[in-house]
Nucleic acid binder design. Structure first.
Lengths: 229, 229
DNA sequence: TAGATTGTTAATCGATTAACAATC
DNA sequence: TAGATTGTTAATCGATTAACAATC
C-alpha cells in the first residue's frame, strides 16, 4: 500500500551535498556572529573548507538564493539551509548506553544548540538508574518504547558496548525510530527505510595510521635520492 | 628538493578502499574469535556490511591473498590487512582537551586494542593537571613539543572547544605531528602534507535529521493517495 | 556601462557494480 | 572432472571541477 511515487517537490539532493550542508550552516552561523551581512561563494567556501565551485553546485540543488554580482545574504541563506536540513524545528533524541561516551554525548552542548533535544538517557545497568546526567534522569532501557511514542522520537543514539548494539537497534526500530547514530564498533543490521550513520573512533585512527605509514615510506624512498649526509 | 617521484612499490589504494580496510579487519577479528578458519568473499562482505564485488575489488588493491574455489584464510588475510594499514606496530597518540569527550576517548579501550597507545593527555586548564585519567597523568599543554619528540608521536587528537582547536592544531604541526583527528566543531587550516580527519557529532545528527524529514514528507505525500480515514 | 559574482553546463575523475574468465 | 570462488574487466553511476553565459 501507499506508493512513494509522486514525491512532489522532492528535489533530489545528492548524498555528498547533504553531508556538506551542515558544514555550510555552521560557517554561516559563524559569519553571522561576526556581523557579516553578505558573503561571496568564495568567502563562504573558504570558511567551510571547500572550493567555491563545489559550494555553488551544492547550493544550486536547494534553489537560487544568491544575487549575481553581489553574493549571498548570510541570514537568508542560513535560514534556507536550516529549513532544507530540517533544523528549524527541534528533534527529540534518545541516547542509549550511559558510559563514558554516553556521558560526553549527553553533556555535548552542540546538540542542544543545533536543533536537537535529549529527551531520555537509557541504560541497562540498574546501578545507573536515577543518576542525573546533564539534567536528565537515567532510566531503564525498558522504557524505550514508551518514551519514543510519548515524544515522537525519530532519532536514536547508540553508545553501548558492541555486544549490546544490535539488540538496542532492534528495539529502537521496533519502537518506531527510523534513524540511528551508532557509536558502537559493530555493523548494524536494520530493515530498509531505517538510516544508520556510524561514528567509529578507532577506524578513524586507523585511516590516519595508514597515511602516516605511507608518508613515512615515501620519505624513506625520497631520502635515497636526497643523500642527506 | 627531494621529489616524491619514484614512490617505489606505492600501490595506490583509493581513499574509499582505505576507509573500508579497518572495517574488514574488524570483521576478520570477529570471525577469528568465533573460530572460523576460512571465509568466502560473500561471508566476509556480509560481516562487514558491504557487497562481495566491492570487497573483492578492494582486496585486489592489496594483492592476491585468496584462493579461487576456496576463499580466504582468516588469520592470513587479517595479518595482511593489518600490515597494509600499519597497525601491526603500535602508534603513540596524544589527546589534547580532557573535558567530557577527552575523558571518554582516554578511557576508550578500542584504541589500545587496535594498535594505538595514549602516551599523553594534555589540557590548558591548570585545575586538570596531575589528575589521572585512564592511568595517564593530565599534563600542561606546553609539554606537547617535548612529548611529541620524546615518543615520536605522529597522531594527535583534538577534543578541545572550537575556539582553541586551531591553536592546538598549529602547535601540533609545529611539534611534528602529521595526522590529526579533530573532534572540535571547526574547520582546521593545516599545511600540505598534514592529514586531518574530522568527527562531528552534531553534523552526523543533522544529516540524519534531513533524511527523517524527507521520509516524513514522502509519507505525507503518499498518505494523500492512501485516504486513511 | 563596467565589474563582479552567481548558477549551470560539460568535461573529468573516481567509485561501484555485474559479469565472467581464470583457476583452485 | 565438476563445482566453487577468486581476481579482473568493462560498464555504469555519482561527484568534482573548470569554465562561462547570465545577470545583478
Amino acid at each position: 500500500m501507499s506508493a512513494r511515487t509522486s514525491n512532489d517537490h522532492a528535489r533530489d539532493i545528492p548524498e555528498a551535498t547533504v553531508a556538506r550542508l551542515p558544514v555550510y550552516l555552521r560557517a554561516l552561523i559563524t559569519l553571522a556572529e561576526q556581523g557579516t551581512m553578505t558573503c561571496s561563494s568564495e568567502e563562504l567556501a573558504t570558511a567551510a573548507g571547500v572550493n567555491s565551485a563545489k559550494l555553488r553546485k551544492d547550493l544550486s540543488y536547494l534553489g537560487s538564493y544568491g544575487t549575481r554580482g553581489v553574493g549571498y545574504d548570510v541570514e537568508y541563506l542560513r535560514y534556507q539551509i536550516a529549513r532544507e536540513i530540517g533544523v528549524t524545528q527541534d528533534w527529540p533524541v534518545v541516547i542509549v548506553g550511559i558510559g563514558n561516551l554516553g556521558h560526553a554525548l549527553a553533556n555535548y552542548s552542540g546538540f542542544r544548540s543545533r536543533g536537537f533535544r535529549v529527551v531520555a538517557l537509557l541504560d541497562a545497568d540498574p546501578g545507573m538508574h536515577d543518576e542525573v546526567v546533564a539534567g536528565v534522569d537515567v532510566r531503564p532501557f525498558d522504557e524505550l518504547e514508551g518514551i519514543v511514542v510519548e515524544h515522537s522520537v525519530a532519532i536514536g543514539v547508540i553508545a553501548t558496548p558492541a555486544v549490546a548494539a544490535q539488540d538496542v537497534a532492534d528495539r529502537m526500530v521496533e519502537a518506531g525510530i527510523t534513524s540511528i547514530l551508532n557509536f558502537a564498533p559493530t555493523v548494524l543490521g536494520v530493515p530498509d527505510g531505517v538510516d544508520v550513520r556510524k561514528v567509529d573512533l578507532s577506524i578513524e585512527l586507523q585511516i590516519l595510521a595508514y597515511h602516516v605509514q605511507r608518508k613515512a615510506a615515501a620519505g624513506l624512498a625520497g631520502s635515497v635520492e636526497e643523500d642527506s649526509a
